[in-house]
Every structure is written in C-alpha cells, then in structure tokens.
C-alpha cells in the first residue's frame, strides 16, 4: 500500500496536480514500485482531508497516463515497468533541469558560469 503520509498539499497549484506529482516522483525515485496498491479513492479522500472529486480527478489522470490501473473500480495498482520508470525519471529530471536553468538565467549567469557553479558543488552533495 502506498503511503501518503508525507504528502503535504499547499496552495500553489490545484491539489489533484500535487497528488499526480507526488505519485510520479515516488515512482521515479523507487519509493513506489510496480504493482504497489493505492488506497481507495474514498480512503485517500479521508486520509488527506481532500474532496473526493479532487482525488477522483487525480486518479483519472494517473489512469490516463497509464501509471495506475483500476480493477473492478475498487483497488488501483501501479503499473510501472522499468522502461516506464526510466521515462518518468527522464521527464522529472528534464523538468527539474529546466527550472534550474531558468533560475540561473534569471540571475544573469551564462551557461559556462552555471556549469562552473554546479561543478563547484558537485562533490559536496
């Protein structure tokens, strides 16, 4: 069963997107594995204190993207074969790289300067 204990919604974007992102990052990082079971929609709604419609929407999106499959409409199972996980990792990395690049640009750094900065901290983390 996937734990949503560490999920903390904020007011920055629609909550269904935050659920979506939470699951995606979980899969990419390996915390959520293939054929893990999700809580029922109702249970998740109660657990998070979030309107069932919102949870429903998040689940639908996950289904659309093929990341979960629901049998009998009750239990939902994660479908993340290795190639899908890799693709997700790439997607998330790309997104993170994009926002980091944007941040560097905002601060007026050139590509070389950014690379140098990254290199300087590479060993530290």
């Amino acid at each position: 069963m996937i734990s949503f204990v560490s999920f903390k919604p904020d007011n920055s974007s629609p909550i269904y997107l935050q659920i979506l992102a939470f699951v995606k990052r979980g899969i990419a990082s390996g915390k959520i594995k293939d054929s893990d079971e999700l809580p029922s929609r109702r249970a998740l709604s109660v657990l998070l204190g979030i309107n069932p419609n919102t949870v429903q929407r998040a689940f639908s999106m996950l289904e659309e993207e093929g990341l979960i499959s629901s049998s009998h409409g009750v239990t939902s199972i994660v479908t993340a074969p290795p190639e899908r996980v890799n693709k997700l990792k790439e997607e998330i990395l790309a997104a993170d790289a994009k926002s980091t690049a944007a941040l560097f640009k905002q601060n007026g750094l050139s590509l070389e300067q950014a690379a140098a900065l990254l290199a300087a901290y590479w060993e530290e983390v």
Partner: peptide, 29 residues
C-alpha cells in the same frame, strides 16, 4: 481541499461562485 464549490460573498452580494473542478481544469488555485 475539502470543498467542491466556493461561494464568495461581499457586502451582501455573491461576487464569486466556482466549482473546484472548474478551477482545476483552468489550473488555478
């Protein structure tokens, strides 16, 4: 996160009435 619809009142008038699903579709908080 709890509500499915928000009704905004100001000075005795409804100045906003929105389904959360609508907001979600618009990607708005």
């Amino acid at each position: 996160g709890l509500v499915s619809r928000a009704v905004l009142l100001d000075k005795g008038k409804i100045i906003g009435d929105k389904q959360i699903a609508e907001l979600d579709s618009e990607n708005a908080g």
